[in-house]
Amino acid sequence: MTSAVEHLEAGDEVLRADEFARIAGLQESQVRELLDYQLLSAPRLDMRTAFALREANRIGRDFDLDLFSVGLLAGYLRRIEGLESEVQWLRAERPARAVYTEVSFTSVELHSHR
């Protein structure tokens, strides 16, 4: 089967509630419930959060977690994703090749400055 694909950028632009719920795999009423718990805020209804909730929801189904726990888990998954991308950034910044060699040294006496 061949099908046209939509390109979903994991960005920060805010989605419509129905689209957010669809991607997160939740009912709109469940999204409202998470907003009431303050586990979500309206400016955070973005693609990144929707996919974190989607993953949390999958784990939640498998482990029979309630919606509140799923919302908490999604918050932690987003934090992990943010930290992973920071680690990736830091790794990219430093040279890949590092050679460690044990070297000899001698102590240097401290001279008092007058």
């Binding site: 046209a4 694909v5 693609m47 996919f51 990736q88």
Partner: peptide
């Protein structure tokens, strides 16, 4: 089982998601 042929557009990045709507 079903085999899907998916076209990945040029310029995707790490963690990118593609959606096949209605499939």
């Amino acid at each position: 089982p079903q085999t899907l042929q998916v076209t990945v557009p040029a310029g995707v990045t790490q963690g990118q998601k593609l959606r096949l709507r209605g499939q």
